[in-house]
Nucleic acid binder design. Structure first.
Length: 261
DNA sequence: GCCCAGGCGTCCC
DNA sequence: GGGACGCATGGG
C-alpha cells in the first residue's frame, strides 16, 4: 500500500516521543506496534511511504491510527499565518509529525512511566511490560502484578502508581471508557484523580490517547522553550485545537537543536 | 561522584 | 496557591 503525503514521515513520528513502540528495522523501515498487531512502514523518499500490509488492513487499522483523515497541510498553513519565526522553523523541520490516535489505556500507563524518565528508558520498560509481545497488557492483566513484580520491570517508584491505577481501572472504580465521551477539561480532571497522574501526564493522555488536540502538555523541554524563546509567556490557547499539534512541532524541533542555541 | 530525563505527591508556609 | 524535597533508574 503506497502512501503519498507531504505531512507524514515515519522516522519523525518514531522519534517524536508520543509513542514508544515503533522500532527501526533497517535504514528506511520501521515497525509500528499498536492495536495488538504491527505494520512495517518503509520510507521510499520524502513524503512517500510504503505500508507493508494489505489495503484492507491499511484502511481498517492504520489510516485511523496515523490520523490520515486530518489534513495537516491546512493546520500548518493556519499556524504559519501567525508569522512566528520559531514555529515556522519547527514546522519546516518536523513536517511529517502527526498526532497518532493511540489507545487510551496504553497512553495512560506509558505516560505514567514516562515521568522523570528518558525516552530510551521508557521504551525499554514498556517493552518489558509487553513481554516482547505485540499485546499491551490490559488492566485485567496488569492488576495481577504485585508492586515488586512491577519494580522488577525497572519502573522504579512509578510501580506503585501503575499498580494502583490497574486496580482502579480493572475494578471499574475508574471508568476509562466513560473518559472518551467527556470534553477535554473534564477528562483532564478525571484523569488527575488517579494517583501518579498530574497535569502533564493527564495532558499527554488527553492528547495522545483521547485525541483532544487542544491539550498542550508542558514538560521540561516545552518549559525550556517557553522560557528561552518566548520570555516565559506562550499563549497556546489562541491556537485552539491546534495547540497540541504545535506542542509536538516545538518539542521535536527543540530536541534536534544543539545545546545553547 | 554529579546532572538529567515528556513529574508527581507530600509537606509546609 | 506556591515552593522545596524525595523519589528509582539508566546514561552521559
Amino acid at each position: 500500500m503506497y502512501v503519498s503525503n507531504d505531512s507524514f514521515c515515519i522516522q519523525q513520528i518514531a522519534d517524536s516521543g508520543q509513542c514508544f513502540r515503533i522500532y527501526q528495522l533497517t535504514d528506511n523501515i520501521w515497525r509500528v506496534i499498536a492495536k495488538g498487531k504491527h505494520v512495517d512502514v518503509q520510507e521510499l523518499k520524502k513524503g512517500q511511504h510504503k505500508f507493508l500490509c494489505s489495503d484492507d488492513d491499511f484502511y481498517s487499522t492504520w489510516y485511523d491510527y496515523f490520523d490520515f483523515g486530518t489534513n495537516y497541510g491546512h493546520i500548518k498553513d493556519m499556524i504559519l499565518s501567525q508569522n512566528d519565526p520559531y514555529l515556522i522553523n519547527a514546522i519546516k523541520f518536523g513536517y511529517g509529525i502527526r498526532i497518532l490516535r493511540q489507545d487510551c489505556w496504553e497512553a495512560l500507563i506509558s505516560f505514567v512511566i514516562s515521568q522523570q524518565n528518558n525516552i530510551p528508558n521508557i521504551r525499554k520498560v514498556i517493552k518489558k511490560l509487553c513481554c516482547n509481545s505485540e499485546q499491551f497488557p490490559s488492566a485485567d492483566v496488569l492488576k495481577n502484578y504485585s508492586i515488586d513484580e512491577l519494580r522488577d520491570l525497572r519502573m522504579g517508584y512509578r510501580a506503585e502508581y501503575i499498580h494502583d491505577i490497574a486496580q482502579r481501572v480493572a475494578s471499574g472504580k475508574f471508568d476509562l471508557n466513560a473518559l472518551k465521551n467527556l470534553p477535554y477539561s473534564e477528562a483532564l480532571k478525571k484523569l488527575m484523580t488517579l494517583h501518579g497522574v498530574g497535569v502533564k501526564v493527564a495532558n499527554c493522555v488527553a492528547l495522545f490517547g483521547l485525541h483532544h488536540t487542544e491539550a498542550f502538555p508542558i514538560d521540561v523541554w516545552i518549559n525550556r522553550i517557553i522560557q528561552k524563546r518566548y520570555s516565559g509567556r506562550f499563549d497556546y490557547s489562541k491556537f485552539g485545537n491546534a495547540a497540541g499539534i504545535i506542542q509536538q512541532y516545538m518539542y521535536f524541533y527543540e530536541r534536534s537543536l544543539p545545546v545553547d542555541t
